[in-house]
Design a protein around this nucleic acid. Structure first.
Lengths: 256, 256
DNA sequence: CGTTTTTTGTGCTCACGTTCACAAACTCCT
DNA sequence: AGGAGTTTGTGAACGTGAGCACAAAAAACG
């Protein structure tokens, strides 16, 4: 799955003229103060949509096109992009490669990030082998597991290290992001050790609430919670149908 | 990891008296119309916190206690619970087991749900073996993969079936929830086939935007997007520090 | 039995996010 | 060159969610 090249600092190709950059606030100034969190969460989606368009050799896309590819409302997309700067051309749309570069720069994907994964069970294993990381500039720098029997085992082209080596590894290379895929019981302890070693962002797959200092970011992914949310809606659907049912027995059951 | 028993339809033990159920709107009526989506997403977290308290033989918990265990503000927790009904006792708090049952009932966890997983790669494998599903009433009913070489392979105590068997499987047992863990390219097609076969809720791990009819719910989990969001914040931290730096070269670099 | 203490349930306010709708900016065609 | 047609960027209206702060309810205690 070869991707179109990412680094593309200037507009090119296409019939679109470059925007006159002299009027209006500078992009840097604009981007500097507060992109809303909801917008940040959507930027990677836009990036993916742009990449997909670029692979189809599309040079220009309207907000409507892009919004379609990203699965959002076009007004929302335009507003989101407006927080980054004015990268579109009225009457035309957005230069796909140019916009792609700008978003990638904003997110920080023009540099590589080292990631460390702690807890190499089922899930940690899958994460270690997940190709979607590397292709977006996330390099797995080390794998850690507390089980001595597992230490030394090969996963992909890395070897599992022991918990004791954690500080060592983190002091040698600069790792900013830690992924926790341990059981719930171990998560807070692992988290504390990662934070102590200078990790500033944590992606937590363990079903546990993590407590961290203010300067550390945590995001949580919880598989069973997602299923539970779906179950809730699914139940409501069934419930509603039951209330409409002709069968009084079904109706009575639903009303409980 | 033995969990405390879930089904507990009536209050018991503890010194808390049962609420007088005759005044105020009925719980059913209240729960019927719109629990906010944000609240629904937190219910599973509360449930987990309650389970954890119950395992520690805690019988009663205040909103403050619960909120602490769930990692949220106590006012928010109280308001969330108020959408379900009046299950607390002023001056006392909530009966842990009673509330646990009520939330589980609301989410729909008092019944079992069958789940089908499509795409048994790294991630699908991990999901198939994930114990967190079974323990919350989600039973994996079948595993599907399009690769003929993989069909028949054993994973846990299931055998991988072919895509062709999909309709067969779904018509025999009633599966409401489908999990897509295929590559992005296959996701929409798999999704369409699941929907056609009557699946009403989909959990999508593939990095693709799915289009579904209105009556179908989709939730998306995207690992690399989570990392990208963390990268954004991490970059901003580094950026801010650079702007504060004494070194003019670092400052200049940061200002680009 | 009244007073104090605890803790819930909720009205209210503010902040954030979404969507509409339209002027401004640009292209294209005659 | 000017008018018709497109499409962006954004002000304004609206909707949802978060958090404060307090009355109401229950318990504890003298």
């Amino acid at each position: 799955m070869a991707e179109a090249p990412l680094l593309q600092p200037a507009r090119q190709g296409s019939t679109v003229t470059a925007p006159r950059g002299n009027r209006s606030r500078s992009h840097v100034e604009r981007a500097e103060r507060g992109v809303p969190e909801a917008t940040v969460a959507r930027l990677p989606i836009y990036l993916r949509a742009l990449t997909s368009l670029a692979e189809g050799d599309v040079l220009t896309a309207s907000s409507e096109d892009l919004a379609g590819a990203a699965g959002v409302n076009s007004a929302k997309l335009r507003k989101d992009l407006s927080y980054l700067g004015t990268y579109g051309t009225r009457g035309v749309g957005y230069d796909v490669n140019y916009l792609r570069y700008q978003i990638a720069r904003q997110i920080g994907l023009t540099q590589d990030w080292s990631v460390i994964i702690v807890g190499i069970g089922n899930l940690g294993h899958a994460l270690a082998n997940y190709s979607g990381f590397a292709s977006r500039g996330f390099q797995v720098a080390a794998l850690i597991d507390s089980d001595p029997a597992r230490v030394g085992e090969r996963v992909g082209d890395l070897r599992i290290s022991s918990m004791d080596d954690l500080d060592d590894i983190l002091s040698r290379s600069s790792v900013a992001i830690g992924v926790i895929a341990t059981p719930a019981g171990a998560a807070q302890d692992v988290c504390d050790r990662l934070v102590a070693a200078g990790v500033g962002s944590i992606l937590n797959f363990a079903p546990a609430v993590l407590t961290v200092p203010d300067h550390v970011d945590v995001r949580k992914v919880d598989l069973s919670i997602e299923l539970q949310i779906l179950a809730y809606h699914e139940q409501r659907k069934a419930h509603g149908l039951a209330l409409l049912s002709d069968d009084p027995v079904v109706r009575a059951g639903a009303a409980l």
